[in-house]
Amino acid sequence: MKREVPLIITFVAGAVMIVQFYTLPLSWLGDLFNDFFNIIVTCAYVLGAASLLIANGRKIQRQAPGWGYNAVLLLSLLATLFCGFCIFPQGGLPTDAGTPFDWIFQNVYTPMSAATYSLLAFYIASASYRAFRARSAEATILLVTAFMVMLFRIPLGELLWEQLPILHYLDIGDFIETWIIGGFNTAGQRAIMLGASVGLISVSLKILLGIERSYLGSAD
């Protein structure tokens, strides 16, 4: 029974979602099931917070190497929760401009998140240095294409291109956009997307029919 009940719930929920997609009077069922999902996800945040508290609390208790970082994480978590739940004007919202929560969002969360994202520029450089080498014919094609897209889709690259004799008659920006990105790249992406979509339908079907049960954990 431990496995049968979740399998039945999965099948019923999946079947309802498929049927409601094609039938107008039953579309409310889809919204209802999605509401259930949102409620479960929201409740699961408690699990996430508990996991954070336990995992980091243990390290602080044991004074494991680097426990100071765990303490900073827990303090930040509790401080943000406190600001979000307790400090905001009466009748207002924690997200209103000028509240401590908004200050944390604007001055801590946003710059830190942006800084992590901006690391991509550095990692793209180091990955390119390591990966783009003309080891074979295929790798050379990839290298030349990547090089063209990287260099000639920026103002400086376009300026350089315009200085080249004869070649400057070709609109390099348009060529890259139409042929490389709009042609080869889109064709390749579509092929991967089509294959992945069929795979996705297959996985969904196997889950609905109970053939794929990994998500329930091992059988014994």
């Binding site: 520029a121 450089a125 783009f132 080498r133 090089f147 990287m150 920026i154 103002p155 400086l156």
Partner: peptide
């Protein structure tokens, strides 16, 4: 800045090859 970063990456690719 974006242009310069791209040029730097392109230079590294040439150097690597």
């Amino acid at each position: 800045a974006l242009s310069m970063a791209h040029v730097a990456i392109a230079a590294f690719i040439i150097m690597a090859n």
